[in-house]
Design a protein around this nucleic acid. Structure first.
Lengths: 125, 125
DNA sequence: CCAACATCTGAACATACGCTCATGTATTGG
DNA sequence: CCAATACATGAGCGTATGTTCAGATGTTGG
């Protein structure tokens, strides 16, 4: 299973023993992600891995909106939208501003807008 | 529930009727994502929303590796790694090259490397 | 205060996802 | 040919996730 142990007694020597091919060709030598780093990064991408949340981001990329209008724009319940905005808030992708009964949401900063636009263009092929 | 219908007969007029606040302040007017567009974009982010796949990308960001070495580097079974490489392949995030019994994987293009590095730096705060 | 509104929250259910396990295919050396 | 190696694949299981539903909190106008 592991294919890590050295060959038994005959046939097919273990040629896969950490000797990768050309040895070096890419950019700088960046250390691989640790387990916790990969988990943090995974959680970040996971927030953007949902159609509803992405549509919310796409709306907020144009202007600021209250929960009610966001729900209406996507033809979804305000409860569902509120749940998703909570996730976007926890990931610091959006900020909000209370005004009376309403809560207006907007993208947290320009990094979010840029990431969204970059990936959108990347998929427009 | 929908809060879309006009007020009944008295009290609390429907102030949330698509009149968002300042009206305009951000960048250009980009149309919101359609349902299918958001699904495609969501699937793309979903591939990057897993710790194992991110660690694979982080390894392939430095060099090209065969499945066996990738599994060994992450202390996981070759089966698990093969399953994840399949997902990365389907998303066109990695390419591969067969050499005898081994299959060497690498990042598909520089866009992948740039996206990975950008987000990594963004989380290093 | 009270009713309507705007939003938030917790529980529950259906679905999606990642790993393990067993098996299948392909390549190599003897 | 045959066995070991390298990788791929399908089924199955436990867990995570998004939505609905019911209800709670907070705000406003009469």
């Amino acid at each position: 299973m592991t294919a890590r142990a050295k060959s038994a007694k005959k046939a097919a020597p273990d040629l896969c023993t950490e000797h990768h091919a050309p040895a070096s060709h890419p950019a700088a030598k960046i250390p691989p992600l640790s387990l916790v780093e990969s988990q943090r990064m995974g959680e970040f991408f996971a927030v953007l891995a949902d159609p509803t949340r992405l549509r919310l981001v796409s709306l907020l990329a144009a202007d600021e909106f209250c929960v009610c209008d966001l729900a209406s724009s996507l033809s979804m319940t305000e409860s569902a939208i509120s749940h998703q905005l909570r996730a976007l808030r926890a990931a610091r992708l959006v900020s909000y501003r209370k005004e009376g009964r309403q809560v207006f949401y907007r993208l947290h900063d320009h990094h979010v807008l840029e990431l969204y636009q970059t990936v959108r263009e990347h998929l427009e092929e």
